[in-house]
Simulated assay, not measured.
Amino acid sequence: MLALVVQKKVKASSIIETIVAVLILLLSFAAGIAMYNQVVLSTYSGLKLRAKLEQGFVADSLVCSGKFEDGAVDRQDLRFEVSYKAHDSYPALLVMHVEGYDLAGNKLSDLLKMVRRPDEKD
């Protein structure tokens, strides 16, 4: 049996339809990129992340050095304010409070850490 080939006229898209389709695609990609940027900006910025990491280093350094006075520590473009308060329930412990700020004074990080009083022995 011979297959009959029927020639049909295939409708092709015009250049206008193609341009409209590409514009719709570009607009959807632009909206997606804008949403992605908002998500990235709403999370920790690099400075906040660095402040969070360095505040642990500052706290550990102060504990190792045995300095238990209120004060401030400057590291590059970050400032860490350190304060100590006696623990209410355990008199042998101090509560170290470290707050990280940028140069404009915006609070970036916060840390509470329990430390043993320097005058307490094991």
Rank of each mutant, 00 (worst) to 15 (best):
G105W: 04
I19A: 09
V98F: 02
Q76F: 07
S61Y: 11
A12Q: 10
V63G: 12
R75W: 09
Q38A: 07
R117L: 02
V40Q: 11
V10F: 14
S13G: 04
I33M: 07
D60Q: 15
F68I: 07
A21L: 09
G100I: 01
I33C: 03
L25Q: 06
F68V: 12
G71Q: 03
S61R: 11
R79I: 06
L103Y: 03
R116F: 06
A92T: 11
V63E: 15
K48A: 13
K107L: 08
L23V: 08
A59D: 07
V98T: 11
L2A: 13
F68M: 13
E17H: 01
Y90G: 00
A12V: 13
D60M: 11
L4M: 04
G105S: 05
A12H: 05
N37L: 13
Q7F: 01
L62F: 12
Q7D: 08
S14D: 10
S89H: 01
G56K: 14
E120F: 06
K107D: 00
S45Y: 02
K8V: 14
M114Q: 10
K8E: 10
A12F: 02
A3W: 04
A30I: 05
N106L: 06
R79P: 00
T43G: 15
V40H: 01
K52D: 15
L4I: 11
A92H: 07
L112E: 12
D110P: 02
D110S: 15
I24V: 14
L47Q: 15
R116G: 12
S13E: 06
G32D: 00
K113L: 15
D74S: 11
Q7G: 06
D77K: 13
G66H: 01
V58T: 05
I16T: 11
D77P: 12
E99T: 14
N37V: 04
K107Y: 01
S89A: 13
D77Y: 08
D60V: 10
M114H: 12
K9V: 12
G32R: 04
V82M: 05
H87M: 11
N37I: 07
A12E: 10
Q38H: 09
V5G: 01
D122N: 14
T43V: 06
A30Q: 10
K67C: 03
E120Q: 09
V95M: 08
A3C: 04
G56E: 08
K107N: 03
E69C: 02
G46L: 07
R75T: 04
L94H: 07
A3F: 05
G66T: 05
G105Y: 04
N106E: 08
E120Y: 07
L25G: 14
L103M: 08
V40I: 14
L53M: 12
V22E: 09
I33V: 13
Y101N: 02
I33T: 13
L62Q: 07
F29H: 04
D70C: 09
L112P: 00
A30C: 09
L4D: 03
I19L: 11
Q38T: 12
L26Y: 00
S83F: 02
H87C: 10
D119W: 05
K113D: 01
D88M: 10
L103F: 02
S28Q: 06
D74F: 01
K11S: 08
N106A: 07
F29Q: 06
G32H: 03
K67V: 14
V6P: 03
S42E: 02
